[in-house]
Computed example of a mutant assay.
Amino acid sequence: MTQQTAVIVGAGKGLSASLARRLAKEGFHIALVARDVDKLTGLVAETGARAFAADAQVAPAIEGVFAEVDQIFGPPDLVVFNAAMRYRGPVELLDPVDVMDAYAVGAFGGFLTAQAAARRMLARGSGSLFFTGATASVKAMPHSVPFAMAKFALRALAQGLARELGPRGIHVAHFIIDGGIASSWATQGEGGPADKWLDPDAIAETYLSVHRQHRSAWTSEMELRPWVEKF
């Protein structure tokens, strides 16, 4: 079996780090893409991944990263889009420039990543393209309009691509992470059960299992939530 390649766009701590560690154990070549690659130094050393600096909303930057990955590892087998900006505030105080930046990163960046991935996967006739959603993908909350706008759009992108690319051999899936991820939200000494937050390692395990699904029973959307999370 040939060594597979994974590209994670919007890499950082939490889910991206857990996914990189899990894929490294499986022998994947791993490309980590982020605006600030300095924050990935430890993860790169731990996993043997390669870090690439790029802004998810800039088309030439994303295409350039995928071209580099082609040269170093070959076309990707798995691409995960994790990029997002959590810009919050009451609507009357939101800065339109910042709102557009949040939307461009979280939604348009998903499109650019998908387009670059699809061009390569279609040439081979296989691959997995995964999008990380949130509670905001299906339920917009007060003071979180910019984040919800991007997540709603990302879900629509995933649905359309699943219908378009699935019959052509590309597995597209959208994951609704309905709750806080432990590495991002848990605080030391906080009361309640230790597993009230989603374990990023458990999420990563789920992503890998979906990537390995047989095409006769592909998952197109999955909701993940801790056992105490309200529906």
Rank of each mutant, 00 (worst) to 15 (best):
Q3M: 13
T5F: 08
T5A: 07
T5S: 13
V9F: 00
A11Q: 01
A11C: 04
G14N: 01
L15C: 01
S16I: 00
L19M: 11
L19N: 01
R21Q: 06
K25I: 14
E26L: 15
E26H: 15
H29V: 04
I30Q: 12
A31F: 10
L32I: 10
V33A: 15
A34E: 14
A34M: 06
G42W: 00
G42M: 01
A45W: 04
G48P: 06
A51T: 03
D55F: 08
G64P: 02
V65K: 00
V65C: 08
V65S: 04
A67Q: 13
A67R: 14
E68G: 00
D70L: 06
F73S: 13
F73W: 06
F73V: 02
P75E: 13
R86Y: 14
G89Y: 08
V91R: 07
E92V: 14
L94H: 12
D95K: 12
V97F: 04
V97W: 04
V99W: 03
D101R: 15
Y103H: 14
Y103A: 10
A104Y: 00
V105I: 13
G106I: 01
G109W: 04
G109N: 04
L112W: 06
L112T: 10
T113C: 12
A114T: 02
Q115V: 07
A116P: 10
S126M: 07
G127L: 09
G127N: 10
G127Q: 07
S128P: 10
L129D: 05
L129S: 10
T132K: 05
A134C: 09
A136H: 09
A136V: 08
S137H: 03
M141D: 13
M141G: 06
H143A: 14
S144W: 01
V145K: 00
P146A: 15
M149C: 08
F152L: 02
A153L: 00
A156H: 05
L157D: 00
Q159V: 02
G160T: 06
L161W: 09
L161N: 05
L161Q: 02
A162H: 03
E164G: 07
L165Y: 05
P167R: 08
P167A: 06
R168M: 00
G169H: 04
G169Q: 09
H171K: 12
H171E: 02
V172A: 01
H174Y: 15
I176F: 09
I177C: 03
D178F: 02
G179F: 00
I181M: 13
I181K: 10
W185T: 03
W185M: 13
Q188S: 13
Q188V: 15
G192Q: 07
P193F: 04
P193I: 14
D195A: 07
W197V: 15
D201S: 09
A202W: 05
I203L: 15
A204V: 02
E205Q: 12
E205I: 04
E205T: 13
E205G: 12
T206A: 12
L208N: 00
A217F: 07
T219A: 15
E221V: 03
E221W: 01
E221K: 07
M222Y: 03
M222P: 10
E223A: 14
E223W: 01
L224W: 08
R225F: 09
E229R: 15
F231A: 14
